[in-house]
Structures are given as structure tokens and as C-alpha cells.
Write a protein that binds this DNA or RNA. Structure first.
Lengths: 354, 354
DNA sequence: GGCGATACTGTTAGCGCTAACCTTGACGGC
DNA sequence: GCCGTCAAGGTTAGCGCTAACAGTATCGCC
């Protein structure tokens, strides 16, 4: 109390000084400005519009900010500028590699431009998507990336009432007002089925799980191709709402055997299942492709390594993520993207299993 | 201009009315309040502290808000309340199932409590982690979840200068000031090696990739176990900085054969690699486990289905995510969590490959 | 020498929300 | 009848930042 009086004794009459840092204990822009001896707006510009500040001063500001541990407050910035620099991304699942790689494409495109992704997982449920849209709208995202085209009416209302640009990934939309990047799942189903027909298979089964719109589109492609060949038979289609897994694929082989089906080939709606099927065929001594051909979809890494290797269709998911993000960046800049509907195609990969 | 004059003609002298909606076109709390005929704070309470508003009025507020498409502005809320309701989560990789499942645990714990996760991917680089920490601090997260304990000095400074509670996942920390949830990777390596020794293998190799701290800890466990048995030989350890993949595992089998190593068992630092190794052994006609035993780590789904099935160690990653998030929730509530260091253990899974 | 152009920095006023305090009215107990 | 209490809602101020406009030098040019 006598010698080391602290602030109180040192500046008894001076009370002009503003609080050194905010309520939260963090340094604010005003703190940095005061320390450098300039106004807050110049600090703001040093960060956001560097070309407007003399290089020397700018450096001094950055150094001071660093030494004070100053970090800009994103909430305040968003509030004042009406730009959140945030993009909301909704995907159906995180455990499905397909969407994770799409995310990687999105990140690689957005981060260098200063945008951040807010990731939401819908678990393939439009209702959950609606809930997530509501939640994420609170962040006033500058843009939105959605998976698929299956949204609830309320979700559509939110999105259309909103100014934020939106791009749909995976499926392609025909509506000229909407933007979409993806590939035709129906064509994928058709491609694979045609391949199986060409290889001489005639009793081709289809296993659909999860029953999300993309799976059903593949099923459509399969059905159309077989109908055209006059070989479609509803009895060879299995529809299960369960999530996809290796386990389920293996179980399906058991079921096919138990039911004594006459399939000479089975087209699984994705690679997880097909891999499980291959594993189980190996266990049970079912010769693939002689006794039974197996086909998948998506080309997961392991599909090139199973015994036998798996015939599948590769989807350009990383590219879909990149292009969707690029399209969104254009929109957020107020530019019209080169195209509103971008089909990135599919790659058919014939391997040993067919 | 004559009959349907709109606002202008309807209220020529009245200019007290505030703008109907903000700059961004979105309805604001004030808009909702005006419509209901109350003040903004009551609207705020109707959302955040419902027990303070009469149920009837509250319902009227919520209905009106809904009909106007009102969504609270998170940035304004965060600024005014100094609470962002956001948790920053940093993980090394999104393509690695281990971290994705950890994320799922975190989500399941945080979302019901109203918190949102901001996910950052460090790509196993402390420098990138530092960059991400800086970026995400702008969001004033109420809490932070980090993977591992390998942070740059600058990152440590940021974190300690910060008030935000932080929990470390995966590795366990001995420092009593830090909070961590995980399991002992070293013990995992030791467990597996001991198992191989018990099965009679004497020339056990180890393949380490990525070389992140967790991999190196497993290697330590392996080394210690072998040293105790007097069987450690540096020549049987392969260290590769490449990311883990099935492909690399297969390539390693080729390399082991080419180098004519004398290993009777190989412990791969994770299941991706081990699966690739099993696939390649099958291709090359190497009998597992008779000719060569193969072991993995993490227990990925496919490991129960390969031929032969893979001996591995299951890590409680989902539980790690949940518990880390729970610990963080306690901290954010100002409570002391039951324990500051939570070891969730490991499960050894013996299968056919050893 | 006066005028405009250019380059840099400052002032003012809010963004939309909530913490902290304040008002109002109803009720009850002695 | 007075006072305290409580419930329900309102007022005020300000979170930390930036848009929009406003200076103030400096320079060049006719």
C-alpha cells in the first residue's frame, strides 16, 4: 500500500484512460490503437484493407497486435460489416468417405479465400437438415452448401426467404433458378447395369440400402437399363433402410444364399456393401465372378485391393466439393458463375469381380 | 400512385417507425417486438430465458417470429453476451475414421447442450494447428478441444493467454494443469507386442507411418516389450513419413519380400496398413499367419472381415470424444470435472491374422 | 498561386443483441 | 394500511467492430 501502489497511486488524477481490455480479458482493437497512438479504424484497415495503410505503420500495428495477443473479434466484425465470412455446409454423414472427400474439396477452395466452413451432419434426414439450417442461419452465413435436393418445405422457405447464395452438391437440378454441381446417379446405375449385361449376366440383382435419393436414383438407372433389355424383375431388388456397412453386405450374401435366389450378378448400391459381400463370398467359397458377379459404387480405396478387386463407378466427389465451393465464391462476389448446373461425370472402373 | 400508395402515402406525417428490417434484409428482434407490441428484451427472453416470460405471451412471440422468418443473429448475441456457444475442435485428419468417430462423440455431447463445433483439420502439422488456433480464436470459442499434445510454443502461448477452457484428446497428459482424455498408445503397442511374443513369434517387425506422436508412442511400446524380451532389433523397424493407406500397406509387403527380411510377424501401426498387407499377402500367396503374422491398430470396420481377420487393438475414440466434450461442458459451466486425466483404456482383439 | 487530385488517417454512428438495473402492479401478512 | 416480496416486463447502455463520410497534408500542373 505504501511503495507499490499500482495504478491507483500512480495516476490519481488521470481518469481519461479507457479500460485496457474488454470484459472478456482479451485485448481489443481500441487497445492496440491506443498503444500505437492511432485510431481504431486504422488498426481495422491494417488487417482488412492493408493497401490503405502505410507499410511502415501497418507493420507497427501488426507487431503491436501480436505482442498484445490481440485477435480480432469475429462476432463484432460480422455484426458491423454484415459479412460473416462463413459458409454453412450440410452433409448427410461423416463416416461416409464420399462426403468427407467432398468436404476436403470445399475446404481447399474456401480456406485460402478467408472463408470458414460450418459443418452440419444431417444423418440423411430432411428434418434434421431443416433443424440444422435453422441453427446455422443464426450465423448469418454468407453462403450455403447443401447435399442433395431432398429438403423439407420449411427448409425451402428458409432458403428462399434468405438472401444467402446456395449451391446444391451431388445431385443435379433442372430448375434453372437453382445451382448444382454433381453427377448423374441414375446414369451411374445405368452404366454399371449395362456393363453387367454386356458381360453376359442376365439375372442381375440390386441391393439398395439407406434409401437416400442418390441410392434410389442408382436403382432407377439399374431398372431402366434392365427394362430396356426386358430383364427387370422386382424379385431381384432388395431395399433396406439400414445404413450401409461391410457387415450388412456380408449379411446380404448370407441372405441371398438362404433365399436361394437365382442371381448371377449383384449390383450393390455402394462399395461398403460390395466389399462385405466379397469378403463373405470368400469365406463361403463362392467363386466371384464365376458363380456370382459383384459390383459396387463410389470406388472406395479398398476396392482396388479386395480379392477379387471390385468393379465399381468412381464419383468425382473431391471435384464436386471444389467446384461447388468455387461456384459459391462467385456468387458471394456477386458474379454469375460460368454455369448454374455442372455435371462432372462418372468414371466406370471394370475390375475382376465382374 | 393514386389508389395503392403503400407506406409513403398511408402515413405521410408519421416518421417515428423504425426500419422494418436490418440492412441484411433479415427481420430483427426489434421487428418482432414491434409486431407483437412489446419490447425487444422480452423477445430475447422468450428465446433464451423462457421461464421469465408468461407462457401465453411467449407462444405469441415464437409464433410471430416464425411467421416473420426471424432468426436470432448469433454474432450480435455473442458480442452482447460474450458467449459464442461455440467450441473449436482441431483434429489431424478427416479421412481417418478414428478422428471422425471422435467428432461424432463430441457432436453428440455438445449439440444437445446448444453448443456448436467449429472443426479444423491440422493435417498432422503443429504449424497448421497454430494457424488454425489463431483463426478460430477470432470466434471467441467458449472452449477448445485439441488432439494430442504436440503444439508449437506460439500455440501454447495463445492457449495459456486465453481464458477458454481446453481439453486434450487421445494422448494423456501428466501435467496436472492440463485436462486430457484418451488412452495410452504406448500400452497399446506393448499389448500387441506381448501378444505376438506369447504366440511364439520372435522376429517381430514394426511399420510406422505418418510418424505422429501416437504412432511413435506405439512404437515405443513395441520397443520396450521387445527389449524386455531381449529381442529388439532396429533392423526390423520401418519408419515412413507418408500418410497411412491400404496401398502403402500392400507396398510394404512387397518391400519386405524384396528386402528378404526374416520377420515372422509384422505389427503395422494401424489397420489401414495392415489391411493392405493382408490383401497383398493373399495376392502373393503368403500364408497368414503361418508364414507371416500381421497385426494392426485401431480396429477399423473392415478388420473383422478380411481373410484372415485382423488382430488389432480397439481404441475408444467415440467415448474419448464424448468424455472430452463432457469435461469441457463442466469447465464451461465453471465446474471442476470429476477428473482432469481420464484414461479410457484399450481393448485387445485377437483374430486370425496372428 | 490556386485548384484539383491523390494518399493517408480520423470521426461519427450504428450493426442486433443482452446485462444490469428499474418500474409496475398484485398479493399477503401483521 | 403499510411494507416487503415477487413476478413480469421495460430502459439504458454498450459489446467490438466497420461503413460512410470527413478531414488534412502533399503534390503537380497550368
Amino acid at each position: 500500500m505504501t511503495t507499490r501502489g499500482g495504478d491507483g497511486t500512480a495516476t490519481p488524477a488521470v481518469k481519461t484512460r479507457k479500460p485496457r481490455s474488454s470484459r472478456t480479458g482479451r485485448a481489443t482493437m481500441a487497445d492496440v490503437a491506443e498503444r500505437v497512438g492511432i485510431s481504431a479504424i486504422t488498426v481495422s484497415r491494417a488487417f482488412k484493407r492493408p493497401e490503405l495503410v502505410m507499410p511502415e505503420l501497418r507493420q507497427r500495428i501488426l507487431d503491436t497486435a501480436q505482442s498484445m495477443g490481440y485477435v480480432p473479434n469475429q462476432a463484432a466484425s460480422a455484426l458491423a460489416s454484415a459479412r460473416s465470412m462463413t459458409v454453412a455446409v450440410l452433409i448427410p454423414s461423416m463416416t461416409n468417405m464420399v462426403f468427407v472427400e467432398t468436404l476436403a474439396g470445399i475446404h481447399d477452395m474456401l480456406l485460402p479465400r478467408g472463408y470458414r466452413a460450418l459443418i452440419g451432419v444431417t444423418h440423411y434426414s430432411p428434418e434434421e437438415e431443416e433443424r440444422l439450417i435453422r441453427t446455422y442461419l443464426q450465423f448469418q452465413p454468407d453462403g450455403i452448401l447443401l447435399t442433395g435436393t431432398d429438403h423439407t418445405p420449411v427448409a425451402r422457405t428458409y432458403l428462399s426467404a434468405l438472401a444467402s447464395p446456395t449451391v446444391h452438391m451431388m445431385e443435379l437440378l433442372d430448375d434453372p433458378d437453382s445451382l448444382s454441381v454433381g453427377c448423374s446417379q441414375e446414369e451411374g446405375g445405368r452404366l454399371m447395369t449395362t456393363h453387367l449385361l454386356e458381360r453376359g449376366y442376365r439375372r442381375i440383382g440390386f441391393v439398395a440400402v439407406q434409401l437416400d435419393p442418390r441410392t434410389l436414383a442408382r436403382l432407377d438407372g439399374y431398372r431402366h437399363a434392365l427394362e430396356e433389355a426386358g430383364l427387370y424383375d422386382e424379385a431381384r431388388v432388395w431395399r433396406l433402410p439400414d445404413p450401409s456397412s461391410i457387415h450388412l453386405g456380408a449379411a446380404m450374401i448370407d441372405r441371398l444364399m438362404a433365399e436361394n435366389t437365382d442371381c448371377d450378378a449383384v449390383f450393390f448400391c455402394n462399395d461398403d456393401l460390395a466389399q462385405g459381400a466379397l469378403f463373405q463370398c470368400q469365406r463361403r467359397g463362392i467363386r466371384v465372378p464365376d458363380q456370382l458377379a459383384v459390383a459396387g459404387f463410389n470406388d472406395l480405396p479398398a476396392s482396388a485391393w479386395t480379392t477379387p478387386t471390385l468393379t465399381t463407378v468412381a464419383t468425382p466427389r473431391y471435384a464436386i466439393g471444389r467446384h461447388a465451393a468455387a461456384m459459391l465464391l462467385d456468387l458471394m462476389d456477386g458474379k454469375e458463375p460460368p454455369q448454374r448446373r455442372l455435371d462432372l461425370g462418372l468414371t466406370f472402373i471394370a475390375r475382376e469381380s465382374t
